Simulated scan of single mutants.
Amino acid sequence: MFSYTDLNGTGVELSFKKNAFPIQATHVLVIAKYKGLWVLTDHPIRGIEFPGGKAEVGEDLAVAAAREMAEETGAIITNIEWLATYLVQDDQPFAKAVFVANVASIQPEFKPRETNGLVLLTEEEFNNAENLSFHMKDSGMKKMLERMSERENC
């Protein structure tokens, strides 16, 4: 378990073990690359971030991850694998399941509804981006990206 305070001052716990928290995840986050580029979305308020959101009532979290990715970026994902879960100690605590996936394709005629749409970044652009959302800059995200990198190198 890794505990940290996000850049908004909220306590967060991150675990790479399933079912580590007393509440079930109801939110999802998807970390993916397409042809070597990070697949992100441009949130109109927070900035550039990995796609994600709330699962619908009764919706499987992996299905929610695929739906959110498609809705926010136009990307169709496959090989969706759970990576981690984090618990946000907000006024109303919630847990978010983090998935990694392969991007099979990107819909060419995609029109975003909730975001400003797809952002593809090289590793260098990603590391130097100034308009990343706050949670993309915290120590929990760094841990998740390290874990993803370890998985890729296996």
Rank of each mutant, 00 (worst) to 15 (best):
H135P: 06
V39K: 00
L29C: 11
P51C: 09
R113L: 09
F126S: 02
E72V: 05
K111I: 14
L132T: 12
W38N: 01
G53D: 03
V98T: 10
G53N: 07
A66W: 01
G47T: 03
D42M: 08
V100Y: 04
G9D: 09
R113S: 10
D138A: 15
P51Y: 04
P112T: 06
F50C: 03
G36S: 05
G117S: 06
Y34W: 11
V28P: 00
S105A: 13
Q24R: 07
I77V: 11
V30F: 02
P108F: 10
E130P: 13
M141F: 11
F94I: 09
L29T: 05
A20G: 10
A64F: 06
N102R: 07
V98I: 13
S149N: 09
E150K: 09
F50G: 00
Y4K: 12
L14C: 10
N79D: 15
V88L: 09
Y86M: 07
D6M: 06
V103D: 00
D60R: 09
P112G: 11
A55S: 08
R147F: 15
W38K: 03
L7H: 12
Q107P: 05
M144G: 00
A75N: 01
K111T: 13
K54R: 15
L145Q: 04
G36K: 01
T122S: 10
K137R: 15
D91W: 13
L121S: 07
A32I: 03
V98D: 00
L120K: 02
T5Q: 13
Q92P: 13
R147D: 05
E152A: 14
M148E: 08
E150I: 14
L7T: 09
N102P: 04
R151E: 10
G11A: 09
A20S: 10
Q92T: 14
R113P: 02
M148R: 12
H27I: 05
I48H: 01
F2N: 08
L132P: 04
S133Q: 12
M144I: 15
F21C: 02
P44A: 13
E59W: 07
E114A: 10
M144R: 02
P108T: 06
A70E: 14
G117I: 03
M69H: 01
T85A: 05
H135L: 13
A62C: 14
V100I: 14
E72M: 04
N102W: 03
S133T: 12
F94W: 14
N79H: 12
R151H: 13
F99V: 06
K111A: 15
R147A: 15
A75V: 04
I45A: 11
V103Y: 01
E81H: 14
P93S: 13
L61T: 05
F99A: 03
K54I: 06
N127L: 15
S105M: 06
P112L: 04
E125C: 08
E114S: 14
F134N: 14
K142W: 10
K18G: 11
Y4N: 08
I106M: 01
V39Q: 01
G47K: 00
I106C: 01
A65L: 04
D6S: 10
F2T: 07
V100G: 08
E150C: 12
K143R: 09
F126I: 14
I106W: 00
V88R: 15
V88W: 03
N8D: 12
E68F: 02
V63A: 13
A129P: 08
E49Y: 07
L61R: 06
W82R: 03
I48A: 02
P112K: 01
N116R: 09
L40Y: 02
T26C: 05
G117A: 08
E124Y: 11
T41Y: 03
